[in-house]
Simulated assay, not measured.
Amino acid sequence: MADKQLMAYAVGEQMNLMALLKNVSVRVAKNGKQYLDLTFEDQSGEITGKFWDASTADIERYQAGRVVRLAGKRENYQGSPQVKIGSLRLANADEPHDPSDFVVHAPMKASEMEDELNQVVFEITNQVWNRIVRFLIAKHRDAFFTYPAAKRNHHAFQGGLAYHTLSILRLAHSVVKQYPTLDAPLLYAGAILHDLGKVIELSGPVSTQYTVEGNLLGHISIVDGEIVSACNELKFDLNNENVVLLRHMILAHHGLLEYGSPVRPRLLEAEVLHQLDELDASIMMMTNAIEHTAPGEFGERLFAMDGRSFYRPNEPQIGEQDNQE
């Protein structure tokens, strides 16, 4: 009989299953002893837990990217799911131990996402933007269609980067239809490239970590540098207005200086891209939390949503709506 998955356990229920160590951090408790702050993952989601009084051997043993047998109790801590660890060990050879089997995947295949993206590239009729986009997507193709869009929070799953990009492009098509004065090719080019720097900022889809470049530079600066490199390869003048406009789309897409953008949006299309990026990321975070919440309850608090928790309304029973009419 297969194990239940992480998010199938109710609060207070005893857990016993195989899981991937997605993230591992060594911390020091108030008593001066070391402990491990762990994030467990399987295809249903992720949950945190603390391994107290960790020895040097424990720290060496429990590394991110390894599969473990976890036993414990599902709890909630300050509004977020957590497991009180009872026992922990590495997977045996005769147990599931391939990390890729425990990673959440995008709801589309990489080939399907690539086909949809390529169709939008044809709509980028400005040749400067079109050639830069095609150059950079070709350069980072494998990573772009397999990497997550974040270490945690929104689209933090294999293929999440491309899926998030496609979501924004679909929203952009709707906005362009409503507001035809928008420069659609600029908006599409900016949407495709806005998070491309994450293929360098992040380590990959399994046990995702920030790279040295990611920590020191950030994906906004990284992709701006990639655009400059592409322009040098393609012999485009960096002072060309088309190049400057595209770089602004990337540099401004976080909207505020305190959120990492070196400049605030000063183009209509840059402001639209920022709003669509926020909308897609927020909906994904809220949807994921609500899916793991029982009807009639509030879900976990979302740090990226100002610490708010969101309510899942009671789902009407079959026939209940008819009786109310």
Rank of each mutant, 00 (worst) to 15 (best):
A2C: 00
A8I: 02
A8H: 13
A8L: 09
V11Q: 13
G12T: 10
Q14R: 15
M15V: 15
M18C: 07
L20H: 05
L21C: 12
V24G: 08
V28I: 15
A29N: 15
K30E: 13
N31F: 07
D37P: 05
F40G: 09
Q43F: 02
G49F: 11
W52C: 04
S55R: 08
Y62S: 07
Y62D: 04
R66M: 00
R74G: 08
Y77N: 10
Q82W: 10
Q82F: 12
L88H: 13
L88I: 12
H97P: 12
D98S: 03
D98I: 06
F102H: 04
A106Y: 02
M108K: 11
K109I: 01
A110H: 01
N126K: 03
N126L: 03
V128Q: 02
V128P: 00
R131T: 13
R134V: 05
L136A: 03
A149I: 02
A150T: 09
H155Q: 13
A156S: 15
L161Y: 01
L161K: 00
H164Q: 11
I168H: 04
L169K: 02
L171I: 02
H173E: 14
H173W: 01
L187M: 00
L187E: 00
A189L: 09
A189F: 04
H194N: 09
H194R: 06
D195E: 14
D195F: 06
L196P: 02
K198V: 10
K198D: 03
V199D: 05
E201M: 05
V206L: 11
V206A: 08
L216E: 12
H219Q: 07
I220K: 01
I222S: 01
V223A: 04
V228H: 12
N242D: 15
L246N: 10
R247Y: 08
L251E: 08
A252M: 10
H254P: 01
L256H: 14
Y259C: 03
G260N: 07
V263N: 02
R266H: 07
E269V: 12
A270C: 05
V272K: 03
L279S: 13
I283D: 07
M284F: 15
M286H: 09
T293Q: 06
A294W: 10
E297T: 05
A304H: 10
A304D: 09
R308S: 02
F310N: 11
R312L: 14
E315F: 06
E315H: 07
G319M: 04
Q321L: 14
